[in-house]
C-alpha cells in the first residue's frame, strides 16, 4: 500500500530521525511513504484570516498532487498535519477560499478537497490496526511508563482534525499499549507547549512545559512521546524534564527496525 507523503521542513533537517524511523516502520508494517515530488513548506501555522490565500497555496499544491496520484496524503509533524487538514477543510467547505485559491493555482482541474489527509498515527490505527501492530512487535517495550504528549495542533479544532476526542484522546495511549508499554494518562497532555512563543519568550514556554512535565511525572511517567519537533524542543528545555522521544523512534524500536534506519 502506497501513500503520498508530506515530510515538512523540519523532518528534512532537525527531525530527520522522526522521518527515518517512520519510513522504516512503515515498510515493516507493509506500507510505503512516497514523498511528494514538489512539496513546499506549509508555513508551520495555519493562516486564520479569511482573506489569507497566498499563504495557503503551498498546502493546496501538496493536496492537489496527492489527488493527481489518487493517494491519501500522510504527514507526521503535528503542525503540517494541522495546516494541511485545515486548508483541505477550507477547500472543501469555504467557497470563497476555494475559488480564489484555484484562481491563483490554475490547475488542470480545480481542487476542491478531494484528498484525504491522514496523520501517520491514523494510518497505524485505521489502516494497519493496533491489533496487527501488536502482532508485529518483536521488542515489546514491557514495563515502560510512557506519557503521550499530544499538544494542541494534533487535536484541535476537533471538528476539523477529526483525529480523536480533543479533550480525552486515546490514540497515542492505544499506540503505547500496542508496543507493549504502559500509557500514563495526565491532564495536560492536550495543553500547549508554548509553540513558537519560545523564540521570543522562552520563559513563557518553559513555564508551560514545566506544568506538563510535573503533571506527567506526578502520574509516574518515565518519558514522553510526541509527534511534533517543536513540542519536543520545548519540552526538552524544562529543568529535570523527562526524556522526550518521537513516537516513531519507539515504534521502530519495538518493530526491531531501529538499527540502520538513520
Amino acid at each position: 500500500m502506497i501513500f503520498s507523503y508530506y515530510p515538512g521542513c523540519t523532518l528534512r533537517n532537525k527531525a530527520k530521525d522522526l522521518d527515518a524511523y517512520a519510513r522504516a516502520s512503515a515498510e515493516a508494517l507493509g506500507f510505503t511513504l512516497q514523498e511528494l515530488d514538489n512539496w513546499q513548506c506549509c508555513g508551520g501555522v495555519y493562516p486564520l484570516g479569511t482573506d489569507e490565500i497566498a499563504s495557503k497555496l503551498s498546502s493546496v499544491r501538496a493536496l492537489a498532487e496527492a489527488k493527481d496520484k489518487g493517494q491519501d496524503l500522510v504527514t507526521l509533524c503535528s503542525a503540517c498535519h494541522h495546516v494541511l487538514k485545515r486548508v483541505n477543510d477550507d477547500m472543501t467547505n469555504v467557497e470563497d477560499i476555494r475559488t480564489r485559491a484555484n484562481n491563483y493555482m490554475k490547475l488542470a482541474e480545480p481542487y476542491a478537497g478531494e484528498t484525504k489527509v491522514l496523520h501517520f498515527l491514523e494510518v497505524l490505527r485505521d489502516v494497519v490496526g493496533f491489533d496487527t501492530l501488536k502482532e508485529k512487535v518483536v521488542n515489546p517495550l514491557t514495563g515502560q511508563k510512557i506519557a503521550a504528549y499530544y499538544g494542541c495542533l494534533l487535536l484541535r479544532p476537533g471538528k476539523i482534525m477529526a483525529l480523536d476526542d480533543p479533550e480525552n484522546p486515546k490514540l497515542l495511549e492505544d499506540f503505547i499499549r500496542a508496543l507493549g508499554a504502559e500509557p500514563v494518562v495526565y491532564p495536560y497532555r492536550n495543553e500547549c507547549c508554548g509553540g513558537y512563543i519560545s523564540l521570543k519568550e522562552p520563559d513563557m514556554a518553559k513555564n508551560m512545559c514545566n506544568t506538563i512535565n510535573e503533571s506527567a511525572k506526578g502520574f509516574g511517567a518515565e518519558c514522553f512521546i510526541t509527534a511534533c519537533p517543536l513540542c519536543r524542543y520545548n519540552l526538552n528545555k524544562t529543568e529535570q524534564g523527562l526524556p522526550v522521544y518521537y513516537f516513531t523512534e519507539l515504534l521502530a524500536e519495538a518493530l526491531g527496525v531501529k538499527e540502520g534506519a538513520l
Binding site: 491532564p187 495536560y188 495543553e191 503533571s215 506526578g218 502520574f219 509516574g220
Partner: peptide
C-alpha cells in the same frame, strides 16, 4: 475551562 485531575487525587 478545565478540570485537571492531580496525582494526589484532587481536582484542579
Amino acid at each position: 475551562g478545565k478540570v485537571a485531575p492531580q496525582p494526589d487525587g484532587s481536582l484542579l
